[in-house]
Design a protein around this nucleic acid. Structure first.
Lengths: 153, 153
DNA sequence: GCCGATGACTTGCCGTGTCAAGTGATGAGA
DNA sequence: TCTCATCACTTGACACGGCAAGTCATCGGC
């Protein structure tokens, strides 16, 4: 059994702190300024960038990193605030489409500047372009390993 | 309002994926193999490395990145499994000490190899020593910014 | 064309985290 | 010494996510 060196452990604990506090911080700001969680924001954002502001629940779940069951509840909440609407896919009733309403688009438009500016001030503008690129690539590497290990259960 | 370039957005979304899936993956393994969540594990680990396997609730909350209220519930659960014990600090009854029991130490000893080996296979062994160091430093930078922005509310 | 299999969600139940209010111990000032 | 403020938690109420079971539409084989 190979243990971690003190240095490796330090780096790992730094990553753990990041995983704990960065989502927390983003959620705080979104919640305070727009009454949205990060997943809610991603749902609105992904819908706004899609043809007809429409996406299938299952695709939406994938791009927002949410389970289908979580997404279903999130969309239910957004629907009750009239930010999103649900419709069965006309061509195949098994699919459900989530559709961004005009009110949802407005809400996103109001939330986006504050959100982006926080992401800038906490992450993007704190690192050099090269550091940010590397950080993204490292994250991709790790996520790829997770995917790989999930496949072989 | 400065928007994000496509490249910056990509990197950011990679980081978001990391923050979503890495904790999930760690929790899965710990839960499956040892019926522990990541915070539970950290609690046991931090206690085991402390003098007398004892720590104040408030210090423990800090090192495990948990709110005091969350830690209180976590320790209640661990206590009901006899992995941890609570005692008021003899020298000042306002403090409560959490103490790792022998059973708790055993549980940690059984959980640690699998946990460490997952951390290795997902993170530590996927990056070069230099990449890991940089990742840790980038994480520190970001967390420092979060702390700074939390201070000025 | 019918019927079981499959796929795409949805939902009841439960465990857990948060927020705010509550509790009990201690220290500080009158 | 007797408050009263403060500190270090703890806990009740509530919101939310996960899991597994349920629902509904479609498809494939007969």
């Amino acid at each position: 059994m190979r243990w971690l060196t003190a240095e490796q452990l330090d780096s790992w604990l730094s990553v753990v702190r990041l995983m704990t506090w960065l989502p927390w911080s983003i959620d705080q700001q979104l919640q305070r300024d727009s009454k949205l969680g990060m997943v809610e924001y991603q749902v609105l954002a992904m819908l706004s960038g899609s043809p007809n502001r429409t996406m299938r629940m299952s695709s939406l779940a994938e791009v927002t990193n949410a389970s289908l069951s979580r997404l279903s509840r999130v969309v239910t909440r957004l629907e009750s605030r009239r930010l999103v609407r649900r419709e069965p896919d006309p061509t195949d009733g098994r699919f459900t489409n989530a559709i961004l309403t005009e009110a949802g688009f407005q809400t996103l438009a109001e939330a986006a500047p504050g959100h982006v500016s926080l992401v800038r001030s906490l992450v993007v503008d704190v690192l050099s372009p090269e550091q940010l690129r590397r950080l993204g690539r490292d994250a991709d590497r790790i996520v790829a390993r997770i995917d790989a290990s999930a496949i072989n259960e």
